[in-house]
Amino acid sequence: MAQVAFTAVVLAWLFQKTDWPHLLQRFEEMDPWWFAAAAASYAANISISSGRWWIILRALSRPAPIAWLWRLNWVGAYFNQVLPGSVSGDFLRAWYTRHQARGMPFALAAVFSDRFIGMGALVGIALTAFLLGGRHVALLPGMDKTMAVVVAGYVLIVALILTPWLNFLNTHLGKVGNKLHDIRLGMAALLRHPKALAATIGLSLIVQGFSILTFWSLAQALRVHLDPAAVWLVWPLVSLFLALPVSFAGWGLREGLVVLYLGALHIGHDAALALSLLTGATVLLTSLPGALLWFGIGHHRLSQHPAIEASENPR
């Protein structure tokens, strides 16, 4: 309920500042070809990221068929958009791969590693854009402090995963501590697997490239001219913040941040709000096939039995 309330309050505040005829006119004049390109780009984002998950599971010696992971990736993307929190679909992905991962802790470790490495790609893109952005970056309010916190936070989490500092969880928190310990060990095993880590980072950069392309294509559809700082710094940073479970599927939080940052780059309130709303709608609509792929998934052999294809046996 708190997430719904946050979303409602932020959107209400933004809407009362909106010129509705102007906003609606932007949607009416939207270029459908650019919108279709954006939807195709986001579909590529969902599909290609299943390959990253596949690499991670193999690196943990807990492989699963790529077609199964592709289906679950679409299902997870759908439920991330329609359930409270921004990671509901991720927990669902872990649940349906618990047999292949031989337990929920390693299934969660694989899914969290998938999400975490994707976030690392966003941090890298945003940091590069911040360092190379020039005078336009200086226009963004508090961006230097924000980037410092984001980078420091990510580095700290990596350090906690790789070091034994959290081993006390195993002895002080009982069964919960054991599960958290197993999740951390699973993620640490991936971070110590150079080839798999390099492959997932490379794939993450491609996946996030499609996310950026989606945002840019929607700006073209609405005829909103975006500064490079908006494309390469603002959107990756907003995407990172959307992982925070403070709003319903990112609604409200995304709109507030986009209006704030694009406004600093001299893009009007209505144009920025239209772009953010269209981005959210595109993500939701493109994720809808996940609802169809979810039907009957509980009866799929891989959701019920630990056995997997002979060709996918651990090395």
Score class of each variant (00 low, 15 high):
Ala107Gln: 09
Ala109Tyr: 13
Ala110Cys: 12
Ala110Glu: 05
Val111Asn: 11
Val111Glu: 12
Val111His: 06
Phe112Arg: 14
Phe112Val: 14
Phe112Asp: 04
Asp114Val: 04
Asp114Phe: 13
Ile117Val: 15
Ile117Arg: 05
Ile117Tyr: 03
Gly120Ala: 12
Ala121Tyr: 01
Ala121Ile: 00
Leu122Val: 02
Val123Thr: 00
Val123Gly: 08
Gly124Tyr: 08
Gly124Asn: 11
Ile125Lys: 11
Ile125Asp: 09
Ile125Trp: 12
Ala126Tyr: 11
Thr128Ser: 12
Ala129Val: 01
Ala129Lys: 13
Leu131Arg: 08
Gly134Ser: 13
Arg135Cys: 01
His136Glu: 15
His136Pro: 07
Val137Arg: 14
Val137Asn: 06
Ala138Gly: 06
Ala138Phe: 05
Ala138Pro: 01
Ala138Val: 10
Leu139Tyr: 06
Leu140Cys: 07
Pro141Leu: 05
Gly142Val: 14
Lys145Thr: 12
Lys145Val: 09
Thr146Cys: 06
Val149Ile: 08
Val149Asp: 05
Val150Thr: 02
Ala152Tyr: 06
Gly153Asn: 07
Tyr154Arg: 02
Val155Trp: 09
Val155Leu: 15
Leu156Pro: 02
Leu156Ser: 06
Leu156Arg: 06
Ile157His: 03
Ile157Thr: 01
Ala159Leu: 13
Ile161Val: 13
Leu162Phe: 03
Leu162Glu: 02
Leu162His: 09
Leu162Val: 05
Thr163Cys: 02
Pro164Asp: 04
Pro164Thr: 00
Phe168Cys: 00
Phe168Gly: 00
Phe168Val: 00
Leu169Gly: 03
Leu169Gln: 05
His172Lys: 14
Gly174Lys: 10
Gly174Arg: 11
Val176Cys: 10
Gly177Thr: 09
Gly177Cys: 10
Gly177Val: 14
Asn178Pro: 15
Lys179Asp: 05
Lys179Ser: 12
His181Tyr: 11
Asp182Trp: 08
Asp182Met: 15
Ile183Asp: 02
Ile183Gln: 03
Ile183Thr: 07
Arg184His: 07
Leu185Gly: 10
Leu185Val: 04
Leu185Asn: 12
Met187Asp: 02
Ala188Asn: 11
Ala189Arg: 15
Ala189Gln: 12
Leu191Cys: 05
Leu191Val: 13
Leu191Arg: 08
His193Ile: 03
His193Trp: 00
Lys195Trp: 04
Ala199Tyr: 01
Ile201Asn: 10
Gly202Ser: 09
Leu203Glu: 12
Leu205Pro: 05
Leu205Asp: 14
Ile206Trp: 01
Ile206Ser: 03
Val207Met: 11
Val207Ile: 11
Gln208Thr: 03
Gly209Val: 00
Ser211Ala: 11
Ser211Gln: 11
Ser211Cys: 08
Ile212Val: 00
Ile212His: 12
Leu213Glu: 06
Leu213Gly: 15
Leu213Arg: 15
Thr214Lys: 10
Phe215Cys: 04
Phe215Gln: 13
Trp216Thr: 01
Leu218Ser: 11
Ala219Val: 00
Ala221Phe: 08
Arg223Ser: 13
Arg223Ala: 12
His225Glu: 15
His225Phe: 10
His225Asn: 08
Asp227His: 14
Ala229Met: 05
Ala230Met: 03
Ala230Glu: 09
Ala230His: 03
Trp232Tyr: 13
Trp232His: 08
Trp235Ser: 13
Leu237Asp: 10
Leu237Arg: 04
Val238Ser: 10
Phe241Leu: 15
Phe241Pro: 09
Leu242Ala: 10
Leu242Ser: 11
Ala243Met: 15
Leu244Ser: 07
Leu244Gly: 02
Pro245His: 03
Val246Ser: 04
Ser247His: 10
Ser247Pro: 08
